[in-house]
């Protein structure tokens, strides 16, 4: 058995035996080189209560080159792309060391959720939201956790309500009143949400953006 396979199999087994870390690594199909990792959202963060899944690809040169990881679960976080799930984390790039394991890397991802690095963002829009109005950012991140990361059975009946139309606004971290205001001018709702999100029309930032500027953006 080659060294890479032995190592990955052992890592998977070790992770299974370790109940305390709450981290799971499962095989997709029968190959140990394409895995699915998951961990609970850290407590006292907007991600609490969520269950986050990560797509893991083991490159042929593993463990001498870093493992490839991206979020499957949508996450609202400055260092995670809100569209693709791509992750910006040093140990997945230059700071990788062959002694790091899948488990330790997943733990690092978990702690990345606790301490975002908005100065080295993966998703610029989300990072802007984070730096300008932390409170509003937390609301949105919590909302995304509820929508995407909470097990549907645990969420129960509330799920239907959450996914109704009005939630697009909350998902973008915007105020319903603001969206209604511009929709009333005759713009399509989706367009208004896009424009307001691009301009980061949130929290204290609202005072800095004139209505004309928004209309201009909407007319683009």
């Amino acid at each position: 058995m080659d060294a890479r396979r032995r190592r990955v199999m052992k890592e998977i087994a070790d992770c299974k035996n370790d109940k305390s870390s709450n981290i799971r690594i499962d095989m997709i199909d029968d190959s140990p080189f394409h895995l699915n990792g998951s961990f609970p959202g850290p407590e006292d963060t907007p991600y609490q209560g969520g269950h986050f899944e990560v797509d893991i690809v083991i490159p042929p040169t593993y463990p001498f080159q870093p493992v490839k990881m991206k979020f499957i679960t949508k996450v609202y976080h400055p260092n995670v792309s809100s569209a693709s799930g791509a992750i910006c984390l040093d140990i997945l790039k230059d700071a990788w060391s062959p002694v790091l394991t899948l488990k330790s890397t997943l733990i690092s991802l978990q702690s990345l959720l606790c301490s975002p690095e908005p100065n080295d963002p993966q998703d610029a829009e989300v990072a802007k939201h984070f730096t300008t109005s932390k409170g509003s950012f937390d609301d949105t991140a919590r909302y995304w956790t509820q929508i995407y990361a909470v097990d549907p059975s645990a969420r129960g009946k509330s799920s239907e309500k959450l996914q109704s139309a009005g939630d697009e606004v909350a998902m973008a971290g915007l105020e319903k009143a603001h969206v209604d205001q511009f929709e009333a001018l005759g713009f399509e709702r989706g367009k208004v949400i896009d424009a307001l999100r691009r301009l980061n029309y949130r929290g204290a930032n609202v005072a800095n953006i004139t209505e004309d500027r928004i209309v201009e953006e909407l007319l683009k």
Binding site: Q65, S97, V99, L100
Partner: peptide, 18 residues
């Protein structure tokens, strides 16, 4: 892997943080 894939001439110790 360091030399061929990363074109790296500083071969650091494999331990984390070393």
């Amino acid at each position: 892997s360091k030399i061929r894939d990363d074109q790296e001439m500083a071969i650091r110790c494999m331990a984390e943080g070393c």
